[in-house]
Amino acid sequence: MTRRKLLLALLALPAAGAGWFSWSRNRNPYYSGPPTDHFDGLRFFNPDHKWAKTPIETIRAIWLGDRVEWPESWPSPFWAAKPPARVEGSALRVTAVGHATHLIQAAGLNILTDPVWSERASPVGFAGPRRVVAPGIAFDDLPKIDVVLLSHNHYDHLDLDTLARIEKRDRPRVIVPLGNNAIIKANDPSSAAEAYDWGAVVPLEDGVTATLAPAYHWSARSVTDRRKALWCAYALDFGAAGRVYFGGDSGFGPGTIFRAAGEKLGPFRLAIIPIGAYEPRWFMGDQHMNPAEAVEAFKLLNAEAAIGCHWGVFRLTAEAIDAPAKDLATALDKAAIAPERFRALRPGEVWEAA
């Protein structure tokens, strides 16, 4: 059976049990709470950027459209050196692990964003997007992790196997947007994942906070749970080490969320902004920024510097593996922004400031 025929067969499975599908579709297994300006009692949504794509459109864009081939392997030229145990004072150090995974070290804290060390970003180990480059830090070389920040539940961001490994080794605090704690605890009952809504300010250490901010995205782990768990970005305040924005995964939309974050939660010493998985635009534009939009978000965030992430690790969309970095360079030149201010990091590459 071809890959395309297999996908069509899998998507047709719920229809074979219409009663089950209807029941699953009309209940939320992750979160129960009163309606808000971004939750209707069943599903979450972006108030100023409402959009939806059908399963048929998904198949057309991801599986049936033309795609530039990726290499089977694309090793990073950067040596995956063992990070320091801690970074103190006003220093800030960020190591790109790959895709949306970063080790952020500041104010004596070690924070991981969307940690994925698995070989595939998939619900199964034998199929789905496979990494073409090793993680920028070997798992055993990680310092003790104090906090994990999760942006949403897509498989390239919420990797249950990796979370269980970190939990067993370090027992960190795990901060997630609403509903995602249920997914983690169903896999690992020992997890103490803490779930928060947009706008929540979470103390991490004396004088260090993480604020959950909106992102223009969505969530799903299967065909019946779309938008039943929340998604977010994070604004970190490290005191003397400055403020860091982690965008998770987001489209640009009307840009409102980036302007609001810059005005209310910034200014930022560093912004970590997704720049990949953006073609074809007719499908991806609502949920993923392209590099030109990422540059606009960078300006609205009022950030001194930025890291471009979410590219060059898992093949998710149609563009070439190196297109995000090339397109970012073009966008920065057009905007008259020095390239060193917004770097598209490869795994193992480090951004740091004293």
Rank of each mutant, 00 (worst) to 15 (best):
E57Q: 14
G41F: 09
H49R: 03
N26K: 00
A80P: 11
Y31N: 01
T58H: 02
S73R: 10
W63Q: 15
P77R: 08
K53A: 08
I56M: 10
A81S: 09
E72S: 13
W63G: 15
H38C: 15
S76I: 07
P55K: 06
R60F: 00
W79S: 15
P84K: 12
P84H: 11
D48V: 15
W79H: 14
P55E: 00
L42C: 10
R67Q: 12
R86L: 08
L42M: 05
V87A: 01
D40M: 08
L64C: 08
H38E: 03
N46E: 00
F78T: 15
T36N: 02
F78P: 06
P35L: 07
F78E: 05
S32T: 10
S24A: 13
P71A: 09
K82L: 00
S73L: 07
T36G: 04
A81K: 05
L64P: 10
I56D: 01
P75V: 12
H38R: 03
A52N: 12
D40C: 09
H49G: 05
N26H: 01
F44W: 06
A81Q: 09
P29K: 06
W70D: 02
P47N: 00
L42V: 13
R67N: 14
D40E: 03
P34E: 04
D66T: 15
H38F: 14
A52I: 15
S76G: 04
P34F: 05
A61N: 07
V87P: 00
T54F: 06
W79K: 12
P29D: 08
S24C: 13
F39L: 09
P83C: 08
T36Q: 00
P29L: 11
R27K: 07
F39G: 06
S76N: 01
W70Q: 03
E69H: 09
I59Y: 00
N28K: 04
N26E: 04
T58K: 02
P47T: 05
P71F: 07
Y31L: 02
R67G: 12
Y31Q: 01
P77H: 06
I59L: 02
Y30C: 03
L64Y: 01
G33V: 09
R67V: 05
N26D: 04
I59P: 00
W79C: 11
A81D: 12
F45G: 03
P77A: 05
R27I: 13
F78W: 05
R60Q: 09
G65C: 02
P75Q: 10
A52C: 13
P55C: 08
D48Y: 14
S73D: 06
K50C: 12
P83G: 10
K53D: 00
R43Y: 06
S24F: 11
G41L: 07
R67L: 05
V68D: 01
I56F: 07
